[in-house]
């Protein structure tokens, strides 16, 4: 039985890196005595796969990982037991059964993520909210947003415009819906630095906070990769949506479903009787 766990990461836990969060959850699973399945062999390990890893310094309301259960447990009880033994800054939100197909787990289906980037300036907190609306529209209105992406081996110019599905001013900062996952991934830092440069905002005097809100998969099934379809595009939905076209809100956003909504709560056994 496959289960998807959604959790929040906040406070001091933002300084714990992805690998340590994994280790932490392995220990939470044991303390909470969740009947998780193991691989076989001399050093059996838990069957666990995380969706898009969160960078150090970011907080989140929508982190996910999938596990395999050896026996069933009700969602309510599992959430309760896990939270009872989790450290402050780590909170399980939901524990839901998901489809058994291999392709539906973890990293493979992540398509987009929402972020809230706080931009705080001591002297004039309202400055951003007032002036952002037009700057963002102009920013998104560009035919392309070329940025230099640095990889370990090389520097590469990429157009990030098609990867921005939504961007609008919110609270003291910016709300973003960006492409995410193993195929097309855009980090919020890259968008914000391009935006600051475009709008002539001096990022020196600003205190940034980075928060992930949610992660999504495409609602409609994927099209199979075809020889004439380039690799990065093979995860596009079949419906005729062109990501990146139009104003603040892209058509792509309409076609997304949260990873959580792909699962269903497990009722306790007594309820079935």
């Amino acid at each position: 039985m496959k289960v998807r766990i959604k959790f929040r990461k906040y406070g001091a836990l933002r300084f714990i890196g992805h690998l340590d969060v994994m280790r932490c959850f392995q220990k939470v699973m044991r303390r909470a005595q969740i009947p998780i399945a193991f691989t076989s062999g001399y050093s059996p390990h838990m069957i666990m796969s995380f969706a898009s890893p969160l960078g150090i310094g970011l907080t989140s309301d929508g982190e996910y990982f999938d596990i395999e259960l050896a026996e069933s447990i009700s969602s309510k009880e599992a959430v309760c037991r896990m939270n009872a033994v989790s450290p402050e800054g780590m909170e399980v939100v939901s524990f839901r059964q998901i489809a058994e197909e291999k392709k539906m787990t973890g990293m493979a289906i992540v398509a987009a993520a929402d972020y809230l980037v706080g931009m705080h300036r001591k002297e004039d907190p309202k400055y951003f909210r007032n002036s952002f609306h037009d700057s963002i529209a102009a920013f998104l209105g560009q035919p392309g947003i070329p940025v230099i992406k640095q990889t370990k081996r090389s520097e590469q110019e990429v157009d990030i415009r098609p990867l921005i599905y939504q961007m609008e001013p919110k609270e003291e900062g910016v709300y973003l819906k960006l492409a995410a996952g193993s195929v097309r991934n855009l980090k919020p830092e890259l968008v914000i630095s391009a935006f600051c440069e475009f709008a002539g905002i001096d990022s020196e005097g600003i205190r940034f906070t980075w928060h992930r809100l949610e992660m999504y998969a495409w609602k409609t099934p994927f099209i199979k990769p075809s020889p004439d379809c380039p690799a990065p595009e093979d995860r596009m939905p079949c419906s005729n949506v062109e990501p990146g076209s139009g104003g603040e809100k892209d058509g792509a956003a309409e076609n997304l479903i949260t990873l959580e909504d792909l699962g269903e709560d497990i009722e306790s056994r007594e309820n079935h009787d």
């Binding site: 406070g11 001091a12 300084f15 340590d20 310094g57 033994v85 450290p87 800054g89």
Partner: peptide, 14 residues
């Protein structure tokens, strides 16, 4: 955010 392993300094462990 600019030092090695910040978890060394934050406490709050289980």
């Amino acid at each position: 955010l600019n030092i090695e392993k910040p978890a060394r300094y934050i406490g709050g462990e289980v």
